[in-house]
Simulated scan of single mutants.
Amino acid sequence: MKINFKNYIASIFITVLMVSIFSSCTETKEEVTLLFVGSFTDKKTGEGIHVYEFDTETGKSTLKHTIDSITNTSFQRLSPNGEYLYSVVDSQKKYNGKVAAFKVDVPNKKIDLLNIQDCGGLNPAHLAIDSSGNYLVNSNYSDGSLSLFKINNDGSLSENSQVLQFKDSSIIKSRQRASHMHSANFSPDNNYVFAHDLGADKIRGFELVKKQGKVSLENPKEIKTKPGSGPRHFAFHPNGRFGYLVNELSGKIDAYTYSNGNLGFIEDYLTYQQKQHIYRTADIHISPDGKFLYASNRGPEEDTIVIFSVDENSGKLQLVGHQSTYGEHPRNFGIDPSGNFLLVANMYTNTIVVFKRDIVSGKLTKLPFDISVKNPSSIQMKTY
């Protein structure tokens, strides 16, 4: 058989070209996990935000970017899509704090400031963002207020559209002479906001009402906690049926059912290994698979992470154990998106300690990759 050489060469060229095009179309981008750390800066301008690349194979971190001209960026929150980072600014000052919006530059592993807005109150302590990424609620601790922001299409913040002020108290006079809003959460269905008032021993519920292009927190209701509890932080279970409140002053976690804007108390659980004269329970998170719950205890005699397994049918907790944080005052901690690592910010010892998480038992094993950073107080992570 006689072969047409020109046609043969042309067919080879076309085949190679098609393989090349197919390969380029199916080539997957390499994933990168970024770790964002917010810090107290001793109430003066300093290194408030650090951005690290986190290796999800080893648990090692590499510093990539620092914001060094900002004050008391003590709490941060990533948008649901991870494109934007929001941080409180000027917390614990005698004048109104602020909220800053940053664009996450993933290729360069850094963040760029978009804008800063007044938060409408004193000492912003917590930020929450709804699942659509359109609204942000800020909790002001010192004057007991909540502020609501609209997030613009470019990730920047509009001026606060609503500030709610609360006047209340409870039984521990050294800590509960006035309302202290410590945090807030959007409900799993995105229709409600629950705010946690340490000073009043109350969870304050609101409906997120959208009318004529505007949004507001309306139809308030109160869920009372046990006197002297000191509600601090809250986590909804991934299945959307349960919620868990960590109480700073009683050292307990309250378990709740959730349905259509209503929280129903199940029971509570002590977070410390033994009775203390002062409790300082701080942060709370649930593993991505929903099987385990973790909370941090900040001294004075015990710096630990408590580990509970979660009954996903009843919402009840079962104690697994306690893990030393290998540092003092674990104000905040985070679980990486894969669920394989847990990182603890030990604020008083200036370290972030990295643990490998056993996804079957929920237990933690310390890795030798501590991150040295001054006064770490907030951890956010995202895989891109």
Rank of each mutant, 00 (worst) to 15 (best):
N239D: 15
I203K: 04
L245V: 13
F236D: 09
N260L: 13
N219C: 12
H237T: 11
A178G: 11
D254Q: 12
S170N: 01
V193H: 04
A184R: 03
F265R: 03
I253G: 05
D254N: 09
S250G: 11
D268G: 11
H237I: 13
A184V: 10
G251K: 00
N185M: 06
N260C: 14
Q212R: 10
N219P: 07
Y269D: 05
V193T: 06
G261V: 08
Y269S: 06
Q274I: 12
F242S: 01
Y256A: 06
S174E: 15
D254H: 01
F265I: 07
H237P: 08
H182W: 10
G205I: 03
R175N: 13
G213R: 11
K275M: 14
N239T: 15
H233T: 10
F194T: 04
S216A: 14
D268T: 09
R241L: 12
I223V: 15
H196Q: 14
L217F: 02
G213Y: 05
R204N: 12
N185E: 10
D197Y: 03
F265A: 09
L198C: 01
G213P: 00
R177T: 13
A178H: 08
Y279A: 11
F194N: 01
L198R: 05
F236L: 08
Y258C: 06
F242D: 01
S259D: 14
Y272I: 13
Y256L: 09
D189V: 13
N185G: 09
A184P: 00
Y279Q: 08
L217G: 00
K202S: 08
N260S: 15
L198G: 06
F265T: 11
K202M: 10
G199V: 08
G261T: 13
H233A: 07
G264F: 07
G261M: 02
K224A: 14
I278D: 15
